[in-house]
Design a protein around this nucleic acid. Structure first.
Lengths: 148, 148
DNA sequence: TGATAATAGTTAACATGTTAAGGAATGACG
DNA sequence: CGTCATTCCTTAACATGTTAACTATTATCA
C-alpha cells in the first residue's frame, strides 16, 4: 500500500501552526507592551482564574512542560509577578501564587485582550468560532479527563 | 467597559496549542525513529513537494522563521539530507535542494505518516476535518495571498 | 523498620521561536 | 559612476520546547 501525504497546504500540523501564528500576532503585539511573554501571560491567567496552584497543576492548565515552567517561574519570581513556597503537607510540592503586581498586570490588559478575542470571533462568526473550539478540543488528548 | 476574558479552557490560543500537542504526539513518536525533528521533517516535505527552493520561499512554505531555518539547514546539511548552493543570478540567494538520502527518508515514512493523518480524519469525520482546515485557514494571515 | 518504588521538581543539553542587529549583494537614482 | 536604500540571509541573545538524567520526598510493603 502506497499512501500519499496531503499537500503541505492542507496538512493539519502546518495549518495549526499557521493559525496559531495568526492568532498570536495581535496578542504578541499587546504583550510586547507588558514586557512579558505569551507563556508568562498564560501562567498569570491561569493563576488569576484558579488561585494558588502547585507546579504540576499549573503546568497542566497552562499547557506548559515542567522544565519550561521551572524556568518561567524563576523569571517571573524575579519580576515579582508570582511567589513560590513549599507545601508543608508534602514537601515535594511547590505552591505558586500570583502577586498583586501580577494581578494588576492581568487587570490592566484584560480589556485589550478581550477585544482581540472578539475580533477573531467576528472574523469567523459565532457559530464557526464555537465549532472550531469544539473540533480543536477533540484533537486534544487531555480533553477526555478534566485537567488536574 | 470591563470586558472579560474567556475561561482558559475556551481560549483560542490555548486550544490551538493543545490541539497541536495532540496531533503532534503520534507524529513525534514516528519521527523519533527517523532521528530528525518535526521541523526538519517539514523542510523535507516541502522540498519533496516543490523541488529546489531558495531560503525565503522554503521558510515561508515550511512556516519557519529565517533564523530558525538558517540553523536547521546547517544541521540538515551536516546530516546529508539537503544541499545548499548560491544562486548564480543573485548571489544573495541560497538554493536548497533535497538529497537522495533526504528523499529516501520521506519515501520510507510516507505511508506511516499518511496513516496518522487518516486516524485524525476518522476521529473527526471527513466533513468536520475539512471544515477544520477551512476555519484554520481563515485565521492564517498568509492565506490571503498564495505563498511565495 | 528498611529497602524499594513512585511522585514532584530541577537540571542539563540540544533544537527551535522570537526579536534585533549586522553583513553582503543588488537595485534605484541623481 | 557613486551613494543610499532594499533585499536576502546570518549572527546574537534570550526564552521556550523537548527528552533524559538526577535529587529530594513520600508511599509501599515485605
Amino acid at each position: 500500500m502506497t499512501s500519499k501525504l496531503p499537500n503541505t497546504s492542507r496538512s493539519l500540523p502546518i495549518a495549526l501552526i499557521r493559525a496559531r501564528e495568526g492568532v498570536m500576532f495581535p496578542i504578541r503585539e499587546m504583550l510586547t507592551k507588558t514586557g512579558i511573554t505569551e507563556q508568562q501571560w498564560r501562567v498569570l491567567r491561569v493563576l488569576s482564574e484558579f488561585g494558588a496552584l502547585d507546579t504540576s497543576t499549573l503546568a497542566n492548565r497552562a499547557s506548559l512542560l515542567f522544565p519550561s515552567l521551572t524556568r518561567i517561574a524563576t523569571t517571573m519570581r524575579n519580576k515579582g509577578l508570582i511567589s513560590q513556597k513549599r507545601d508543608d503537607k508534602d514537601r515535594r510540592r511547590q505552591i505558586i501564587t500570583i502577586t498583586e503586581a501580577g494581578q494588576k498586570l492581568i487587570d490592566d490588559y484584560t480589556d485589550q485582550s478581550a477585544q482581540i478575542v472578539v475580533g477573531f470571533r467576528e472574523t469567523l462568526g459565532d457559530k464557526n468560532y464555537e465549532q472550531l473550539l469544539d473540533l480543536l478540543e477533540q484533537l486534544d488528548p487531555g480533553s477526555k479527563q478534566p485537567r488536574a
